[in-house]
Design a protein around this nucleic acid. Structure first.
Lengths: 190, 190
DNA sequence: ATCAATATGATACGCGTGTCTCAAAAATTT
DNA sequence: AAATTTTTGAGACACGCGTATCATATTGAT
């Protein structure tokens, strides 16, 4: 049933719990038992999609290469599950709106910061060269080019294809890393 | 009534058409006459919010300064209407999902590329120095750091405040511009 | 003041999501 | 095999969005 949902989502659609139920050949009630809401459904598929990304480990000692490697292995996967990640983003926006409405903002955040950990890990080699604040800022800037949002902007707004999207994201990422490193060097030098 | 919707959205909530009706003191039916769907409602408020941004014109001749100026004037406005832009993004995601489901992908795109025009305009001074492809790539990279998506990533995921968000976006933008210019110079030199 | 045209309001309807109840089926225990 | 526990399915329900209908104000013209 999770498989059915994953398959459907990879096919591009964002099925409702009822649709998954029908596709999986179970009753609606049963489907709602396993996935009490569409959020739970998407959440499960996102975890499935994130699998290979979260186990990514760098092989290089150079931060630039590590970032490039991370992007190269992650972005295609994100694109493969584009519908899933977009559904997750949509849900996080709904949660945000709900949190604004009811002032009881104590629900758990949907969007967990996997980006944060991955990028910090990729930038680990820079720890000596850059200050913690500089590494953080770089990681924050990189996280802008690393996620579904990147796909949305480059593919949907600019109309780029998958290859160009990847290329632009890679270029931006490497440019940011280079800029941060150069900046640190010149400030240390001067 | 549009004013009511704008006011509500600036207060952070994403009201339904019914809620706007009640808040504006008109009947539900009347509200649906003016805004046939929530999409129309959000669309109208987005246009309201975009007003000052779209009339932005650069005063400087330096591309870096122009981009900085654009970010400085636009990002706070986007943040001021954060709920509105997030609602718009949510709607665009829904439309995308709908387009994937029904294969009749001929509906008009919700997310219009205002970013594209603004950034191209800001980068106009580089036309001589960079090739068209280089300018485009830079604009595409910059557009990743210029929009609601930036707010989502930096505020919601990283937990930054408004000031830090602005600072990171600005830094990333200027770093990208510098990188593109240096790259062009060195390739012309070499 | 009267009449036509338009805007508004109240109400009911279809549709999809999510919740609930209860009976039937399947698996487990003894 | 019989009894008990667990899982599943069918249907009914509440709720919110969007639509349609029809009567009632409200406006403007004669």
């Amino acid at each position: 049933m999770l498989e059915t949902a994953t398959r459907l989502m990879q096919a591009g659609v964002t099925p409702s719990v009822s649709e998954v139920a029908e596709a999986a050949g179970v009753s609606r009630a049963t489907a709602y038992r396993y996935f009490p809401s569409e959020a739970a459904l998407v959440h499960a598929v996102v975890d499935e999609a994130l699998g290979p990304i979260l186990t990514w480990r760098s092989t290089s000692a150079d931060a630039g290469e590590r970032v490039a490697d991370l992007f190269e292995s992650s972005l295609p996967r994100i694109e493969e599950f584009e519908a899933t990640f977009k559904a997750a983003l949509k849900l996080s926006l709904e949660e945000w709106a709900g949190r604004q409405a009811g002032t009881l903002g104590n629900e758990p955040q949907f969007t967990r910061g996997h980006r944060v950990d991955l990028l910090r890990q990729a930038l680990a080699p820079l720890k000596g060269e850059l200050s913690k604040g500089q590494v953080d800022r770089l990681a924050q800037a990189l996280s802008l080019t690393f996620g579904v949002e990147t796909l949305i902007v480059l593919k949907d707004i600019w109309g780029l294809d998958a290859g160009r999207t990847q290329a632009v994201a890679q270029w931006a990422a490497s440019a940011l890393v280079r800029a941060a490193v150069e900046e640190a060097r010149s400030s240390k030098k001067g």
